[in-house]
Structures are given as C-alpha cells and as structure tokens.
C-alpha cells in the first residue's frame, strides 16, 4: 500500500474496510472557528476531494487502469455546522469515463442520515502509460 502523503497525514485521513468510506480523525489544526470549535470548511472540502481521489484510484486499480488522478472541480454544499469530532466521507462513483470521472461525496459526523456536507467532484484520469 502506498504510504500516506504529508498532506494526507496532516488531514489525518484513514481508510476503512469499505473502499468507498474514509475517516478524517479530528485534529486541533482542523479547527476553523475556535469559539464554536467547528471544523474549517476548507478542511471539509479537502476531505471531500481526498476521498474522491482515493475512491477513484481504488476503482481504477480494480479495473487494471492507470490510477493517477487529479481533482479538476469540486462543488461543495455545507449542510450543517460541524464539531470537533471525526468526519466520515462516503463516495459514490457516478461515472468513470475515459479521461474524467464524476463522483459524489457525503460527509457526516454522528449520523449518516444527517450529513454535514456534500460534494460533487470531477476528476481527471491521467494516462501514465507513456510517461
């Protein structure tokens, strides 16, 4: 397994047995508003982008395809206030085309039925076969 990058370590993202489910372990440096101790919106966005990348890489590997990907666009809705607790991200792969893929991500804390955020991501699949 590829070791976690410095960014993934900073975000404290961990994988689970479910290839489409990821966890962001709360860290003090994730705080956005110190008064209400909510997680920074950008950190939630970074989790969405990172989870989408990882889920797509997993899916591409299963198909035996090149697995170098980059986030092109992420559209994020902030549905509820967050708190200083772990965040869970579940990825739904909408479509994998030849060069791009579309993924939806749902993020929650206490209850999957009460998401704190949702994201819609477009990722570029890079052809690394001739590199």
């Amino acid at each position: 397994m590829k070791p976690l990058s410095p960014a993934e370590q900073w975000l404290a993202i961990s994988i689970t047995d479910d290839p489409d489910l990821f966890v962001l372990d709360f860290q003090e440096h994730h705080i956005g508003n110190p008064i209400i101790r909510s997680v920074h919106g950008g950190v939630v966005g970074a989790l969405i982008e990172c989870a989408a990348e990882k889920a797509l890489i997993n899916a591409l590997k299963e198909k035996g395809l090149p697995s170098e990907v980059e986030v092109t666009t992420a559209s994020i809705d902030y549905l509820r206030v967050t708190k200083d607790a772990p965040l869970y991200a579940r990825v739904n792969i909408v479509r994998i085309a030849r060069r791009i893929a579309f993924l939806d991500v749902k993020v929650w804390q206490d209850n999957e039925e009460l998401p704190v955020s949702r994201g819609s991501c477009t990722l570029r699949i890079l052809d690394t076969t001739n590199v």
């Binding site: 990058s5 410095p6 993934e8 950008g42 950190v43 966005g45 970074a46 982008e49 990172c50 980059e70």
Partner: peptide, 16 residues
Amino acid sequence: VQRPEDNTLHSGFATI
C-alpha cells in the same frame, strides 16, 4: 505535499 515526487501540494490546500 501530496506528491513527494514533484513536491506538489494537495488540491485541498487551495480549498482551505
């Protein structure tokens, strides 16, 4: 940094 090979950052940095 997301890709130590070329020292580039994760897109989440720009989002933050």
